[in-house]
Design a protein around this nucleic acid. Structure first.
Lengths: 165, 165
DNA sequence: GTTATTGCAAATGATTTGCACAAGG
DNA sequence: CCTTGTGCAAATCATTTGCAATAAC
């Protein structure tokens, strides 16, 4: 876990007078163990492997806390459930490209976007607070070469692919 | 109703061999009577005023059809329910700015955004299919003048404001 | 001890679906 | 007729919540 995350979490916990519990500690630990996106169900599965089995309610409650602490961000990847993104501390203004074929998610940053956002908001008479850009696209590989390892991997792992809207 | 919409709807209905029913006709009519965004519940309310009272199921089924026909687009305005936008025929690539104070939604178009999208996708090795940009912002009026008629109107109408994430 | 936290099961709320009946072509 | 569409009520599914038991501090 990134030391900055830990520091901020501790500060948050202190300010909210949160008690230290094994369940919550384990969840926070697991959430920030990698930089992967996840949903609540996937986190439940990951928790099982750690040996600590917090209830679904506790998982959801902890995710809310981390979101409130601005350590986690709820994002919408175009499916019906909430995805959590633990990478906004490192890259505060990144956005997401989702492959319509394999559901692979790619994070990207672009300075133009920030500028654009500022201009736009100003033009419309607003102060920008946050922006969310989601690009749906299909990968050149699949289109040009007829195969894409992400798609193959997704199918093998039984990952449920996004239904096309 | 925009004649182009009607034309496309008829073509779609024909291609799918849809039967003509009073309920569906009335829903389609009402959906495209104005250019306002709406959610399923609001549409139900609007339908009541037309004298035709289709069931919730029929409303949802018709919304799905119109979405499939590309006459309506499901958008995410940051709350928990699906919003439908009937304005994508006129302005195929517009996006949305949502006021964090009054939940007012402003549609905007920007050529830079299209260009940016192309460049980005290309840079990442993808072919852009669609983009969704949502900007959350607070209006200058409320900030500078301490009041904003949208907020007042929203409160008066009992409109439920977005919960801040 | 006092108060926060947990786990369970039940509640919620938007959307979907199975099915019997009604209506379009 | 034959098949599609409708309405109802029940089902879904992610997420939230009430409450009694448990654990922090």
């Amino acid at each position: 876990m990134h030391p900055e995350i830990e520091k901020r979490y501790l500060a948050f916990a202190q300010s909210k007078k949160l008690r230290q519990t094994s369940q919550r500690d384990a969840i926070v630990e697991e959430v920030f163990r990698t930089d992967e996106h996840f949903n609540a169900e996937e986190l439940m599965d990951r928790m099982k492997k750690t040996g600590i089995h917090p209830s679904r309610a506790t998982v959801y409650r902890t995710l809310s806390l981390l979101t409130e602490a601005n350590l986690l961000k709820e994002i919408d990847l175009g499916d019906e459930l909430t995805t959590y993104d633990p990478n906004f501390l490192d890259r505060p203004s990144h956005n997401h490209l989702v492959c319509v074929d394999c559901s692979k998610v790619i994070e990207f940053e672009d300075d133009h976007l920030e500028t654009l956002n500022e201009c736009l908001s100003k033009r419309l008479g607003f102060q920008a607070v946050s922006q969310t850009l989601r690009i749906e696209a299909c990968c050149d590989k699949l289109r040009l070469q007829g195969r894409c390892e992400n798609l193959i991997a997704a199918r093998l792992s039984g990952k449920k692919l996004k239904k096309r809207r």
